[in-house]
Design a binder for these strands. Structure first.
Length: 308
DNA sequence: CCGGACTCCTGGTTGC
DNA sequence: TGCAACCAGGAGTCCG
């Protein structure tokens, strides 16, 4: 469900509350939410309890909370470099992270963390997920190859930087895109090429750039590819500014509030309604087991210009 | 490398 | 009203 703007809203809401917080206790209500954790749920709990959260980070749709090195324990005498770890959160299609007081329950809470913040006091973090495509995991941090000295959780290592990341390399992206032999929407959804874009914002950016979703990437001119990247950035930034896209109570920020971007959608979910640009109806076609929404007039597959 | 099929799931909405 | 079919913001794996 949530794409970059929604995940970033969650990260930003989480950061001040969790940074410096001590993990007092952890309860796993449904082990299926630990699908991406390498060990059993006891291991997940053991690795979290007693730790201190340092900050809240994000790459694409992945969120993680780096953990300070654990307090040295006799039984586990420090034999040198401890591996850095983080609590990794992916919201999947229906995940939510809700910050509550110690008495508030939420329906469909799969995992709960009780936190103590040195200034804000006791706090409860409920990981809620209807469909259980999301997950939490304690993962080790490893070095990335795409920026000097940066660490990311191992399960995020294959994810490309997102277009709002200061280290995102436009030229690298455009070169890789041009070398792909696939449709442009498929490429936008490929998190190893650029991250953070999902079905909503792919459709919105393609509509804004007037590009058909199945236009072969190899036939996109460099200026049109640049335009598309610019439109991706614009739509992500605008959605972020409006607190993300909420269709119902499925996507909310850490306080349970909805975003407003659904009022600004031009193509996604607008099938049958007039294209805001030309007035012809927006079409929905089945694509990659989901919907693709576009204007059949504004967004047509273009033949590449003849070379020479 | 590419595309398609299929997997993990629950629950709200639509249609008969 | 009841119930089945369909739909949903993601992402991984496997196979041809």
């Amino acid at each position: 469900m949530p794409e970059l703007p929604e995940v970033e809203v969650v990260r930003a809401g989480l950061a001040p509350a969790v940074s410096g917080s001590h993990v007092a206790s952890v309860t796993v209500f449904d082990e299926r939410s630990l699908r991406r954790h390498a060990g059993p749920s006891e291991d997940f709990v053991d690795r979290l309890e007693g730790r201190t959260i340092v900050s809240a980070e994000r790459r694409g749709k992945f969120l993680w909370l780096p953990l300070a090195a654990p307090e040295p324990v006799e039984a586990r005498a420090s034999t040198g470099s401890a591996t850095a770890e983080a609590l990794v959160v992916h919201l999947g299609m229906s995940g939510q992270v809700l910050l509550r007081d110690r008495t508030t329950d939420d329906r469909l809470t799969r995992i709960r963390l009780e936190l103590d913040h040195p200034d804000h006091g006791p706090l409860r973090l409920n990981f809620v997920d209807q469909r259980i495509f999301g997950s939490m995991a304690v993962d080790e941090m490893i070095e990335t190859t795409d920026a000097p000295g940066a660490l990311v959780p191992s399960q995020v290592a294959h994810i490309a930087r997102d277009p709002l990341d200061e280290w995102f390399d436009d030229r690298l992206f455009l070169d890789r895109l041009a070398r792909r032999n696939t449709g442009v929407k498929r490429a936008l959804l490929d998190q190893t090429l650029l991250s953070g874009v999902g079905n909503i914002y792919a459709d919105e950016a393609l509509w804004a750039a007037r590009i058909h979703y199945d236009q072969p990437t190899s036939t996109l001119s460099r200026p049109r590819a640049k335009l598309l990247l610019a439109e991706v950035r614009l739509v992500l930034e605008k959605a972020l500014g409006e607190g993300g896209t909420s269709f119902d109570a499925q996507y909310v920020n850490v306080n349970g509030a909805s975003g407003y971007f659904s009022h600004s959608l031009n193509a996604y979910g607008q099938q049958g309604k007039p294209c805001p640009r030309c007035g012809r109806p927006i079409i929905r076609e089945s694509f990659m087991n989901r919907g693709s929404h576009f204007c059949a007039f504004c967004q047509r597959v273009r033949a590449p210009r003849a070379a020479g």
